[in-house]
């Protein structure tokens, strides 16, 4: 869905990414190695997420013909999850991609002593008129912000007694909060405020959710 939001033209993609005017693709919260972190603590969670998440991210970059990729924080889940295998997958992913990749440091990444240097980790980035930072609490007043961290999920009434939970984009004031990209990440239900705009992708397109369908 292409929208002029926050006075900039951006494209919200159903794959839980946003494409900026200069073809910068932004995703967030991959939490690579989360399953491994669980395993290391004695919880039998199957492997498989990290590689498939990277694979789908690579496909997305190609499809969108992205000129660069920004990962808006929490690429990694925890030190225990950053294994050599994950490092290798990441390396071959970047090689295959052939475009610049940059990491905005998230709260989870911060716990990792040596982030791979190739990612040029930085606290925040300015791109196509946006301030890109992980924590929505660090949004700027003077220009539009893209943040992540909340893993926003919309709870949508289906007219019966049940409701659907769908990962969503949230626009609150001058800020866009991205859904989490990783498949093993879960989410937190957004408590909608007045004038919030919420977008979900139940199928292969992004749709704005009318406020009356939202549930707390």
């Amino acid at each position: 869905m292409t929208t002029a939001l926050l006075e900039q033209t951006i494209e919200l993609l159903p794959e839980k990414a946003v494409l900026l005017a200069d073809r910068t693709l932004v995703v967030a919260d991959l939490h690579l190695g989360k399953a491994i972190a669980f395993q290391a603590k004695g919880l039998a969670i199957p492997e498989g997420d990290s590689d498939s998440d990277l694979a789908s991210l690579a496909t997305l970059c190609q499809q969108q013909n992205a000129s660069r990729l920004i990962i808006d924080g929490d690429l990694f889940h925890s030190p225990a999850g950053l294994t050599t295998a994950i490092e290798q997958s990441l390396e071959s992913f970047m090689e295959k991609l052939g475009i610049p990749v940059q990491l905005v440091i998230g709260n989870h990444d911060r716990k990792i002593a040596r982030l791979p240097a190739k990612l040029e980790p930085v606290p925040s980035i300015e791109a196509a008129g946006f301030h890109i930072v992980h924590d929505p609490g660090e949004a700027r007043d003077d220009r539009p912000t893209i943040a992540a961290h909340w893993h926003p999920v919309a709870r949508i009434a289906d007219g019966k007694r049940t409701s659907l939970r769908l990962p969503c984009f949230l626009i609150r004031g001058e800020m866009l909060v991205l859904p989490s990209f990783g498949s093993f990440t879960g989410g937190a239900i957004v408590e909608p405020r007045k004038d919030d705009r919420i977008f979900v992708a139940p199928g292969d397109q992004v749709i704005e959710v009318p406020p009356r369908l939202l549930r707390k």
Binding site: I156, D158, G159, K160, R161, T162, L164, V200, P202, G203, I207, E208, V209, P210, L213
Partner: peptide, 23 residues
């Protein structure tokens, strides 16, 4: 009464329709 919920796919479909109408 609650209608017996359909499978996820048809629920999603229904949702989509509703959302599209709203949009």
């Amino acid at each position: 009464a609650t209608l017996p919920a359909g499978d996820v796919a048809s629920r999603l479909e229904q949702m989509l329709e509703e959302l599209n109408q709203a949009a």
